[in-house]
């Protein structure tokens, strides 16, 4: 029983159909608990007041914006090496979801930044690389649409994905590279719950609902990618059938 069996479109659709309701249900539960807890049952921060609550949307969406691109990178590499069409279609299916996540992170960041930092936008290394990542998402989707031949499109978008992953990684690690800029470092990894550290910088009161929100966003992403990949597979099969009909 090899994992590559799931590269068979029929097998993929059959399996994902079975797990999809569970993942979607879990995502809904985690989102309701995480966001509800975060918005209504957490105290105000000692310096940010209630503006801190935007963290429950900003951090999970930024986390997924980066990880969606890395997932697309893995799927693209599998396509390049093993030529599994489902893999290429999964990368294609994830792009719009990742782009929306990037947009959410950019918008919530601006809304938080205006009262806290004193600016909507600043050309800080992390913010800038995140904006470039968003443009890469748009370019990636446009390239898929622009090329007629499915295999050529999958090849070229895979290369674009490889180049774009520079900015996906940069937006996560830019702070560590240059140790400068306006955006703070990663708070999540400093949470007491994550490190077991007792001198926590992010109180568990905030961290626990945040982790539940991240889990909810991640499950939502997986559910959407499964669903959209199924759609892509069916759309491609339909195009193939129509083409065959025209020839007959």
């Amino acid at each position: 029983m090899s994992i590559w069996e799931y590269a068979n479109p029929v097998k993929f659709i059959r399996t994902t159909d079975k797990v999809l309701p569970w993942i979607a249900g879990l995502a809904a539960v985690a989102l309701v608990i995480g966001l509800g807890w975060g918005f209504f049952f957490t105290p105000d921060d000692y310096r940010q007041g209630s503006t801190v609550k935007i963290i429950y949307i900003h951090v999970p969406s930024a986390f997924l914006a980066i990880n969606a691109w890395l997932m697309m990178l893995v799927a693209s590499l599998i396509w390049i090496v093993r030529r599994h069409h489902v893999s290429a279609l999964a990368a294609r299916a994830a792009a719009p979801v990742g782009a929306v996540m990037t947009l959410i992170a950019l918008i919530t960041g601006a809304i938080w930044g205006q009262p806290m930092w004193g600016t909507w936008w600043e050309w800080d290394p992390r913010l800038t690389s995140f904006l470039i990542l968003f443009l890469f998402y748009l370019g990636y989707m446009a390239l898929w649409e622009a090329i007629e031949n499915d295999d050529t499109a999958a090849d070229l978008t895979s290369i674009l994905c490889l180049v774009g992953s520079v900015f996906a990684l940069l937006s996560r690690y830019a702070v560590n590279f240059w140790n400068q800029g306006l955006h703070q470092g990663s708070s999540v990894m400093r949470a007491g719950a994550a490190t077991g550290d007792t001198t926590e910088r992010v109180s568990n009161v905030f961290a626990v609902p945040l982790f539940i929100s991240i889990a909810g966003f991640a499950l939502l992403f997986i559910a959407l990618v499964f669903l959209r990949t199924q759609t892509e597979i069916r759309a491609r099969r339909m195009r193939a059938l129509l083409a065959r009909e025209r020839q007959a």
């Binding site: 957490t42 105290p43 105000d44 921060d45 000692y46 310096r47 940010q48 007041g49 801190v52 963290i55 806290m116 930092w117 004193g118 600016t119 600043e122 306006l182 703070q184 470092g185 990663s186 708070s187 400093r190 910088r201 992010v202 109180s203 009161v205 905030f206 961290a207």
Partner: peptide, 18 residues
């Protein structure tokens, strides 16, 4: 001409600090 504040990635409940 412009002042921005940096955030130090510390999150604590207001009541606890008080």
């Amino acid at each position: 001409s412009e002042i921005l504040a940096k955030h130090d990635e510390t999150y604590m409940p207001k009541e606890v600090v008080d």
